[in-house]
Design a binder for these strands. Structure first.
Length: 661
RNA sequence: GCGCCUGUAGCUCAGCUGGAUAGAGCUACGGACUUCUAAUCCGUGGGUCGGGGGUUCGAAUCCCUCCAGGCGCGCCA
């Protein structure tokens, strides 16, 4: 029998044998009601009973008979129970014998696929309008995108992470207009020194915070004073056409705010490869090329009459009658005034991501990030990709992390690609849609919002300035962590714990679950939280540190295997053995909450093992105090194995590996 | 009106492709720190899985229907 070189995967081995024997692809596994029955089970015989026209028990016995003759790796025996379940008893000693040394040997790369993949993945996330501070809803996007990117990199894909900067949209125009026209000195002629305008910004308040209020205030002022929206219109045109000094001013403002956004997400260890500026999409002629292509392929048509008269549209669903009158389901790409809609630009941009446009951005270095990696940005003053020795786009798979409200336009983008003949790329356009973060009634009240009826939740809105700012939240969590700590902890540790707590909080919900942000819930430091994960890791580190201090060496060899594996040891081994399968699965489904869940399960199984290494004994003797050197070596090795796998899991979730808390 | 999503313990949520007795955390109550981290662990309490029908040997999971909530369906952004 050839020794299994890959990391021990108990269930996979069984599935392999079963699949071959039965010729069935999908074989679900379950957990039997009692541990004495087996470690896991399958109801496959019950499912097969009908088509094979045999009683399930008979089939089960047959399968069990075969399996017991041809035992899959790590399986001790296979039994069946009525009405036809197959129960698998795992040989945990064998698992320990194979798994522990494997983990210890491979360390950081345990469970990682051995070879790189050819496919290139383009992940876009964050993409916050550069006109105000980020709020916690934006953070959900960043954390999801960052975690997906980490997982895909781990799995061997080449991943480019990009942050799209919408610098020409109305939102930036609003803030620019507010700065120009709200409080004196007011911008009148093109000759006005813009330094006077910059001078209005208080030095003691961060720019993104100042703009947060200013933006909201501008919305109010516009309602009162109609002339403001006319002024805004003029600003918009100047910026769109790239007329200085306003276009330069707007770009400066956006650039400064982008810096604060990047600082904000860096607090959660989120970094990018490229900043993509919308202004560059237009400037480099992406749209013109796309427009020609769309016309050539007959994907869009010019409307001579009807509600969309004078527009270029994607015929998508014809017209419908609603209570509000006749509506067109067609998507407008070019307005009757000749301007391009978001979706239009998105199509051009999506084509570029796949390398389907004959055009490219110009690039230059933005700076070096805290993780040591260079961040690139598109720029009119940049150089072509060939000159910088790095290429972007040309992806095989594109993942756009955008909240669920954008599902319809995202669908249009992918549909257009398909209709243009890019079927494969249309299928490889993934909209990673997640539900929004809303404020609980309690949170809204704490933020001083006037109670509008008895609403259960309140949506965050930049427009009205309601929301919890990301940086405030991070500070709040940090302070809470310091408060809750029994001993004095370092600033750095508190920061790392806060980041882990927040990432975990935003990650553990399934994508289609709205997060109802509640301060009590979000500031928890006990139970199912990021802090728990870090604590388990730090605890394992401490044990190993202590062992080293006391000069207790432990070198793994097969002789230190105990005669039997305790219940908590078994649970831990089981969790450890599932690591790579989980990561692989999440890489496919992109349901990152399942990795978060795994992290918690793994941490729990370790904590249980730590508290009761031998649950049947009345008094637990812990690790370094064990008299039996063999058992001591075995358990310390298990602690080390946990530390390594937990460390890998934390890294994938973008969390620090704290050696000490 | 049409489409998508959600409804599971007092609260916040898991539950993958249908499988045996539906799980966590928080909260409440009761325990465990002179020993490598008690931000931990153990125990107790708590659920007609929104309602109803159907498919199936078997349904929280699939289908239909109703109810409740969220979102989308702009030449807005």
């Amino acid at each position: 029998m050839k020794k299994n070189k890959k990391s021990p995967m108990i269930r996979e081995g069984v599935l392999d044998v079963l699949r071959k024997y039965l010729g069935v692809e999908e074989i679900p596994l379950n957990i039997p009601p009692g541990k004495e029955m087996g470690d896991f089970s399958s109801a496959i015989a019950l499912s097969l009973a009908k088509e094979r026209r045999k009683p399930p028990m008979e089939i089960a016995k047959e399968i069990a008979g075969y399996l017991n003759e041809n035992l899959p790796p790590f399986i001790l025996k296979v039994t069946c129970t009525p009405p036809g379940y197959l129960n698998f008893k795992v040989d945990w000693l064998k698992v320990a014998q194979a798994l522990i040394p494997e983990i210890l040997k491979r360390g950081d790369s345990f469970g990682k696929p051995p070879s790189l993949r050819k496919e290139k993945v383009f992940v876009e996330h964050t993409s916050v309008n550069p006109n105000k501070a980020m709020h916690i809803g934006h953070l959900r996007n960043s954390v999801l995108g960052d975690t997906v990117a980490r997982i895909l990199r781990w799995l061997g894909y080449s991943v480019d992470v990009c942050n799209y900067i919408d610098d020409t949209g109305i939102q930036v125009v609003d803030v620019v207009s507010a700065l120009l026209y709200l409080d004196p000195p007011v911008f009148e002629k093109d000759t006005l020194d813009l330094n006077l305008i910059w001078g209005k910004i208080p030095s003691d308040e961060p720019l993104d915070y100042y703009c947060w209020d200013l933006y909201a205030r501008f919305q109010e002022e516009m309602e009162k004073d109609i002339s403001l929206s006319q002024k805004r219109e003029r600003v918009l045109h100047q910026i769109e056409k790239g007329v200085p000094p306003l276009s330069v001013f707007a770009k400066d403002l956006a650039t400064k705010i982008v810096h604060s956004h990047l600082d904000t997400v860096a607090e959660l260890s989120i970094y990018f490869d490229l900043l993509n500026w919308e202004s560059d999409i237009i400037r480099q002629g992406f749209w013109n090329a796309t427009f020609d292509l769309l016309k050539e392929k007959g994907v869009i048509r010019f409307e001579e009459k009807g509600p969309n008269q004078g527009c270029w549209v994607v015929p998508y669903g014809g017209h419908i009658e609603t209570e509000e009158g006749v509506k067109s389901l067609d998507k407008v790409l070019v307005r009757s005034n000749g301007s391009i809609t978001y979706t239009g630009k998105d199509i051009a941009y999506q084509l570029w991501k796949f390398g389907l446009l004959e055009r490219d951005f110009l690039y230059k270095i933005w700076g070096t990030q805290a993780n040591g990696e260079i961040l690139w940005t598109t720029s009119p003053e940049g150089e072509p990709a060939s000159k910088i020795g790095r290429s972007f786009g040309k992806a095989d798979l594109v993942i756009n992390v955008i909240d669920v409200r954008q599902s319809y336009p995202q669908e249009v983008v992918s549909e257009c690609l398909g209709q243009m003949g890019f079927k494969k790329q249309a299928e490889s356009s993934i909209h990673l849609a997640y539900e929004v973060v809303n404020l609980s009634a309690q949170a809204a009240r704490l933020l001083g919002m006037v109670e509008t009826e008895e609403k259960k939740t309140v949506a965050m809105s930049g427009r009205s300035g309601t929301g919890v700012k990301a940086k405030d939240f991070i500070q709040l969590v940090k302070r809470r962590i310091i408060e809750k700590s029994e001993q004095i902890i370092e600033e750095k540790v508190a920061q790392a714990l806060a980041a882990s707590a927040i990432r975990y909080y935003l990650l553990k919900y399934s994508l289609e679950s709205q997060i109802i942000f509640d301060f009590d819930e979000a500031l928890k430091t006990t139970g199912d939280t990021g802090v728990y994960l870090e604590y388990a890791y730090a605890r394992a580190s401490s044990i190993l540190r202590k062992a080293e201090e006391k000069g207790i060496g432990f070198e793994w060899d097969d002789h230190c295997l105990p005669t039997h594996i305790t219940e908590t040891e078994r649970e831990l081994l089981d969790s450890l053995s599932q690591f790579s399968t989980i990561v692989e699965k999440v890489g496919k489904t992109l349901r990152v909450s399942q990795l978060a869940e795994y992290a918690f399960t793994l941490a729990t199984s370790f904590t249980n093992f730590y508290e009761h290494p031998d649950p049947h004994l009345k008094n637990q003797t812990l690790f370094i105090h064990l008299q039996d050197p063999k058992l001591r070596t075995f358990r310390l090795s298990l602690v080390k194995a946990f530390k390594l796998v937990m460390g890998n899991t934390l890294s994938l979730l973008g969390m620090s590996r704290l050696q000490k808390i």
